[in-house]
Design a protein around this nucleic acid. Structure first.
Lengths: 191, 191
DNA sequence: GTCTATACGATGATAGAC
DNA sequence: GTCTATCATCGTATAGAC
């Protein structure tokens, strides 16, 4: 009994291809070669190229939104919520690089109406993240800052973590998380 | 006398196209339509599609490296240097969105040997930025952090500034800069 | 489910007349 | 420098035999 079905292998190889070359530059011919099939045979398993992109983007969007929902529901302070959100982002980005890369970089090649739906989920996540930061500011836990600027500043560095963290070879996920939290919570400047 | 030559108009329209749809999804036919020429006429002005991408990527790489070099040469503290670097990134990213978007998002479609050359310039910039942070740590101006993690955390949020700052409508560049500096230097947490 | 064969449109680029 | 015409190639996807 094989560990992975042909369909699973197609999705996995496609993800690697999309990650390395981008969605548009990846061809069905290459994908077929990777899984040792003729191009036409791929279509016995999937409806088309975009179906793969769609699955990756929406699986990840749902994953992040579910994580956020769980954190929102817990009786935590804004600080603790932000810490958990950052921790979650780091763990997902480092453990599932391929998938997160595509989620972050290739969603724009979704066709309508999926693109609009995706953007709405993304915006929803950002809006709810901003709300948590604003609650922290109002509660006096965070400094008086523009919550939107703060969220995008930190969210952006997390979203593209997958691109740069291989540059810091040898660091453990635990240390990576500690260092990032240090920068985000306390900033660069010594007291 | 026209303000822009045909060649300049081709580069400008191509940049907008690349920014909006990505390099691969942009076609020479679309570009020709934008500048009111037949496709074949474009080739009287440029050698090919990649020449445009090449120019945008390398012009920007040089611009950022030149800015860094100037700052390095000044008799400033690491803190002041970092502040100037951040300020410069913000000004370029907000004043020349189109160009910076392509520089950040589309360089990977450069073919060799240009790709390798580009990556080397990029790495050089990062390495020198890390060095400044490390000097700040050694001088006691910055907290004891992993300089690489710190640089990528902040550099990433600056590099993709062009993607999110329209989400914070109405904010002035001055305020944007102040808020970002606040987050990066002092962090989220209230004292 | 896998194959061979192929449809069919889009692509970057060129040839050569004017 | 601009055009019309065209090329070779590659893209996703389908038809239909086995």
């Amino acid at each position: 009994m094989a560990r992975n079905s042909t369909k699973e292998r197609i999705f996995e190889e496609a993800a690697i291809l999309f990650r390395d070359k981008g969605y548009l530059a990846s061809t069905m011919r290459e994908l077929a070669a990777k899984v040792d099939l003729q191009v036409s045979s791929l279509y016995s398993y999937i409806g088309g190229k975009e179906e793969i992109l769609h699955k990756i983007c929406f699986d990840n969007a749902r994953r992040f939104l579910t994580g956020l929902k769980n954190i929102e529901a817990q009786p935590l302070s804004p600080s603790e919520k932000v810490q958990k959100l950052i921790s979650e982002q780091i763990h997902i980005a480092t453990s599932d690089v391929t998938s997160v890369t595509i989620f972050n970089d290739e969603w724009r090649h979704l066709s309508e109406p999926y693109l609009a739906e995706f953007l709405q989920m993304r915006k929803d996540y950002e809006r709810r993240f901003i709300k948590i930061i604003q609650e922290g500011i109002d509660a006096g836990e965070f400094v008086e800052i523009d919550a939107t600027v703060a969220v995008f500043t930190l969210l952006t560095s997390l979203r593209w973590l997958h691109r740069w963290y291989p540059a810091r070879k040898g660091i453990s996920i635990k240390s990576l998380e500690r260092e990032i939290l240090k920068v985000i919570f306390h900033g660069l400047k010594a007291r």
